[in-house]
């Protein structure tokens, strides 16, 4: 898909002030989102994935601010948006599905009304027309008996159903971009698959671009077209899903892949990544992942690596790709990932 990106984030920097100190949460992140694609952003907790995507809907916490970079959308730089500008975007052009369906819905309002609210607000429909649209939306997300369900309250729905409703709310106004922040983490596995399928169906029907935020590579493998890997507030590698899985170059990506449970050998402990993410209050020198990388190069501690292109669609921010770098082997367990994955999934 060589089109112009819908959202184009360049060198975004985000800072938080916490108790008088400054936390640099996002350190020069760049990202493109193309029309109709599914982009997955993966990383650990605290890598900054949620924070980064929150800026796409202007939902950054009160103590955070964008201190650098730009976020282009429809010809405007959203990094400079005021609240009134966001009111035109949220829910209408860019929507978000949040993590915990149990708490995302207002327990005192009828489900139908919560969907209808969005419809009335953005589409100007009122009363019966809006109600009809809301019921339609409920049906579309696979809620059986939607007329009756319209009048029910969240506590009468199961977790999976609630997430469908949240999705219904997010998709009700046919946004161009749908951001899903770990939408299946709180659900059990069977429901997971259904929800993912639902999002996929909606995406096709409505022509949306979807951003998935997840730490679950299984989900990534399932839904993503492209993947971006985040670590310590930066995107360290991005590419198509196959490139990332089968041809990853950043040591952090390797570590993530190694930790896939599917690769686990019976009887052995699953591999983990030692250490903890760096303290973002401090200045970071060199490659942020270096302290946890057993095979770090000396230069990793000194200078931050730039992006090196692996292919047109795949880049990684690691000195390993520098022509001057010594040859580093990918870890053994992920070398024949393609075969192993096909074998696992049959």
């Amino acid at each position: 898909m060589e089109k112009k990106p819908i959202i184009s984030a360049r060198d975004v920097e985000i800072e938080f002030s916490l108790r008088g100190r400054t936390l640099k949460a996002i350190r020069k992140c760049s990202l493109d989102l193309y029309e109709g694609e599914t982009l997955a952003i993966v990383g650990e907790s605290g890598s900054g994935k949620s924070v980064f995507t929150k800026t796409f809907v202007g939902m950054l916490d009160a103590n955070g601010r964008i201190t650098g970079g730009s976020i282009e959308f429809e010809g405007q730089d959203m990094a400079k948006f005021k609240e009134k500008d966001w009111l035109k975007i949220r829910g209408k052009k860019i929507s978000m599905v949040m993590q915990d369906p149990m708490t995302s819905l207002n327990p005192l309002k009828k489900i139908g009304k919560q969907i209808q609210e969005s419809i009335e607000h953005h589409q100007g429909l009122k009363g019966e027309a809006a109600k009809k649209a809301a019921i339609e939306m409920l049906a579309k997300v696979g809620i059986p008996d939607p007329e009756r369900r319209y009048n029910q309250y969240p506590h009468e729905f199961s977790g999976g159903m609630r997430q469908r409703v949240v999705i219904a709310i997010a998709a009700a106004c046919k946004p161009q971009v749908l951001i899903c922040d770990e939408p299946t983490t709180a659900l059990d596995v069977t429901i997971q698959a259904q929800i993912l399928q639902l999002i996929r169906d909606l995406q096709k029907e409505l022509g949306m671009s979807v951003i998935y935020i997840t730490h679950d590579l299984g989900v990534v493998a399932n839904v993503a077209d492209r993947v971006a890997v985040m670590y310590a507030g930066q995107i360290v590698e991005y590419g198509t899903v196959e490139e990332i899985f089968y041809d990853a170059w950043h040591p952090y990506t390797w570590a993530l892949l190694q930790a896939l449970p599917q690769l686990g050998v019976k009887g052995e402990a699953l591999p983990t990544i030692d250490g903890t993410p760096p303290n973002l209050f401090n200045e970071i020198h060199g490659d942020a992942f270096a302290p946890r990388n057993k095979k770090a190069l000396a230069i990793d501690f000194v200078q931050e690596p730039p992006f090196f292109k692996v292919s047109e669609t795949h880049s990684a921010k690691t000195w390993y790709l520098d022509p001057r770098a010594p040859k580093v082997e990918r870890p053994h367990s992920i070398q024949n990932l393609r075969e192993k994955m096909e074998a696992a999934h049959g």
């Binding site: 809907v57 939902m59 009111l87 975007i89 949220r90 829910g91 209408k92 929507s95 978000m96 949040m98 915990d100 708490t103 995302s104 819905l105 207002n106 327990p107 609210e117 969005s118 607000h121 953005h122 949240v166 709310i169 997010a170 106004c173």
Partner: peptide
């Protein structure tokens, strides 16, 4: 609360 965040992200003023 989370549902207030949802309301905001829905686009309500």
């Amino acid at each position: 609360r989370d549902y207030i965040k949802l309301a905001k992200v829905k686009g309500l003023n």
